[in-house]
Write a protein that binds this DNA or RNA. Structure first.
Length: 740
DNA sequence: GTTCTAGAAC
DNA sequence: GTTCTAGAAC
């Protein structure tokens, strides 16, 4: 037997007589996977082998391929196998699941414990097999959990057991310990914490296929639910559809019965996006211009949507925008079965209007918050708190012209009642001086942004179609007498997939600063900033870069292409900014190959000032030069900052993490990346919320005062990564001071 | 970006 | 009670 395999002492020589099991453990470091294995292997009546990637390479960390080979060999040898590795995403699991066969059941046991608990266990442990302990463990666990993708039955598992605490882990241990050589465990998902159980019960009832697992099943057993079903096989032009007079079709009795019993709305086979007219209500955009743009954009996208439909919805029968769009669409010969207008409330199109739309658009506000009035308030109210949370998890704000696709949580009333699976938030241009970011009647910019908004919206819809398959016909699964649960699950899994792929923004990049938030106050500032959403306070550096003559007292150095100033709120003993003087260069994401020379000059100037401080002020200082991935202030600026971080202005986590996580992009790396890739990597703003760690010894600290107290005395060497490639600048005599 | 402050954490 | 954070307002 290979060194990586720990045979169960209770059944070392045993060979499995009945079906063998491959049990994949899924969980972060510190979740208790190895402990679970040990406990089962100690007491089980079956012969088990543990395949652990941390020790598979002659007692050291090995590869997935080695694990696969060992697992296969153990299974062939008649053993049951635990795959003891994190297996946190589907890709990591796929190859192992393929080892399943009629004689080998593949199970997953998910140790879905709180991240904090896993982190604290990982940080504390010593002698870990994979050497994941102490400081680096926290970062690793955090990173892994961010990408976590829980297993689903349709990956090929016959059984998945979710454990959320130690008691549930003990249940899992008992379950496997109790298994005799010929015992089987019930198939399905057990202990999953989501809201889908209720729906499943409804669906199962509707399908008359309730079939509770038996035997040693934990009583909370459930199976995954399909998404709300599109259960009608015909279109639903039932009530107030405006326009071309296509006849209405009433829902069949069976569908209505099913609908009533399951609380799931009937709908058509045809994927449909219902959207309100963007910007024409509260944002007071001219209706004639808006209707031109709607028809233009619908015409552009309709052919790309396959069999999917677009429906412009408005509450009012006398809606001017609907009439205009209807007339213009007819003149343009847009296929009225693919695009039509509809009078109704967008949050009850199915139950009150008989029009089933799996996707609805929301005329959102920039904060992506509920409230206000009109469609935004209606959708957030109808969808419940889950939509707010799901939205929040994906983005905190929108800029005019952008859209954000949000899969609607399955517990949402809008999902359950109306069959809405996705909401696409869209922010259009504002022409109302009483609302933020008013364009002051600038219809050049307004039309551009409105076009962008519809492009973002329709592309968002296309991304949903692409992901879920244009051709899905869940209605057949519901109706068909031979409907098989696995098919339903597979479909549901596809429909329920939650992924960042849903994020879609038409704007070329995410803007770099929050917009002015004040209702009723138009944002002043230059044209470009307004389009990008820079608010007045965030334009201070831009103003200096463009008008240095007005800021003579603040400027330390002025050249043709750069300006050096002191940071107004220094976060360290020495903290300068080197501003680029180029127009249209707001932040790192604007930087491309043509700026390489400028980047090098900025670096050179920054380095010169660091060396000046080292020679003339304090030779013990250490400097770092770099950019914030997403700056708060407009105009590309290089930070030259000493690493003492001794400043009263350093007050919060964001301050610290903006200089001490990957959010801070070292100038040398930026130059290298732009040189080789044409652009610099932008790192996630989520890094700003990470735990506080000393930049030298990497120790974690609970709050800013404690961290500052620590860094005041920490003399540990800087991490190796910072010492490489001239990322840190020491006094000139140091061998480490290098130029890129 | 900062300031202010409610309320969570201690 | 005080300290600290995080979100809103600017």
């Amino acid at each position: 037997m290979d060194m990586d395999l720990d045979d169960s002492s209770a059944a070392t020589s045993g060979v499995q007589k009945g079906k063998r099991l491959l049990v994949m453990l899924v969980g972060a470091p510190g979740s208790g996977k190895s402990t679970l294995c040990e406990n089962v292997m100690r007491a089980s009546k079956r012969p088990w082998v543990r395949v652990c990637q941390d020790i598979i390479g002659n007692g050291k960390s090995g590869t997935k391929a080695q694990c696969l080979k060992s697992a296969l060999s153990a299974l062939d040898g008649g053993k049951n196998v635990f795959i003891d590795r994190c297996n946190l995403d589907k890709e990591q699991r796929t190859e192992f699941v393929k080892l399943g066969s009629p004689q080998i059941d593949v199970h997953a046991v998910v140790l879905d414990l709180p991240a904090q608990l896993c982190i604290s266990r990982s940080v504390k442990r010593i002698g870990h097999e994979g050497n994941l302990q102490g400081g680096k463990a926290a970062a690793v666990v955090n990173r892994m959990l961010q990408k976590k993708e829980l297993p689903k039955l349709n990956e090929g598992f016959s059984r998945i057991m979710f454990c959320h605490n130690d008691a549930e882990i003990q249940d899992a241990i008992n379950t496997y310990n109790a298994l005799g050589p010929f015992d089987d465990l019930p198939r399905g998902c057990f202990g999953e914490r989501n809201h889908e159980t209720k729906i499943q019960a409804g669906i199962m009832k509707f399908m008359k296929k309730i079939d509770a697992p038996s035997g040693t099943v934990p009583k909370e057993s459930s199976v995954q639910s399909p998404a709300p079903h599109q259960s009608s096989d015909r279109t639903n032009h039932k009530f107030d559809r405006q326009g071309d007079g296509i006849g209405s079709t009433n829902l069949s009795e069976k569908q209505e019965k099913g609908n009533k019993e399951t609380s799931i709305c009937p709908s058509s086979d045809i994927p449909t996006l219902a959207f309100p007219s963007i910007s024409t209500a509260d944002f007071q955009f001219d209706h004639d211009k808006a209707s031109d743009i709607i028809v233009e954009k619908v015409g552009e996208f309709i052919s790309k949507l396959g069999n999917a439909r677009l429906v412009l919805v408005d509450l009012s029968h006398g809606s001017k925008i609907l009439s205009l769009v209807k007339a213009k669409a007819a003149r343009k010969n847009i296929d009225s079965s693919k695009f039509f207008t509809f009078v109704g409330n967008i949050v009850n199109l199915s139950t009150k209007g008989g029009l089933c739309c799996s996707v609805i658009a929301n005329a959102a506000n920039w904060r992506l918050k509920s409230g206000g009035g009109g469609v935004n308030a209606a959708i957030f109210n109808a969808a419940g708190a889950d939509l707010e949370a799901a939205t929040r998890a994906r983005a905190k704000m929108l800029h005019p012209g952008q859209a954000l696709v949000v899969p609607l949580p399955s517990a949402s009333p809008l999902y359950l009642r109306e069959g809405v699976t996705h909401v696409i938030h869209v922010l259009g241009p504002n022409m109302n001086p009483q609302r933020p970011n008013c364009l002051d009647n600038d219809y050049n910019e307004g039309c551009k942004l409105l076009r962008q908004a519809y492009t973002s919206l329709f592309e968002g819809f296309m991304s949903i179609l692409k992901m879920h398959g244009n051709e899905l016909k869940p209605s057949q699964m519901l109706r068909g007498s031979d409907c098989h649960l696995d098919n339903c699950k597979q479909d549901s899994d596809q429909k329920n997939k939650r992924s960042d792929e849903y994020l879609l923004e038409n704007s070329k990049k995410s803007r770099c600063s929050p917009v002015d938030t004040r209702d009723g106050e138009a944002v002043k500032g230059n044209e470009r900033s307004r389009a990008k959403g820079w608010s007045s306070w965030s334009q201070a550096l831009y103003q200096i870069a463009m008008h240095p003559e007005r800021h003579k007292g603040d400027i330390l150095e002025l050249t043709e292409d750069v300006i050096v100033i002191k940071d107004c709120y220094p976060k360290a003993c020495k903290h300068l900014l080197v501003l680029a003087r180029a127009e249209h260069l707001d932040c790192l994401s604007d930087v491309h190959e043509e700026h390489l020379e400028l980047l090098r000059r900025m670096h050179g100037v920054g380095l010169k000032w660091a060396e000046k401080f080292l020679q003339e002020d304090d030779p013990s200082l250490v400097f770092r030069l770099g950019y914030h991935s997403v700056p708060s202030m407009q105009q590309l600026h290089l930070h030259v900052i000493s690493q003492d971080f001794n400043s009263t202005h350093l007050k919060n986590k964001k301050h610290w993490n903006s200089f001490n996580t990957a959010f801070f992009r070292d100038s040398v790396d930026v130059i290298e990346e732009v040189s080789s890739n044409g652009e610099a990597g932008i790192h996630d703003e989520g890094l700003l919320a990470m735990e506080l760690r000393c930049h030298r010894c990497r120790s974690a600290h609970p709050n800013i005062p404690r961290l500052k107290w620590h860094i005041g005395s920490c003399k540990a060497a800087f991490p190796v990564a910072l010492l490489e490639n001239g990322r840190l600048v020491f006094r000139p005599t140091s061998a480490m001071a290098t130029k890129p």
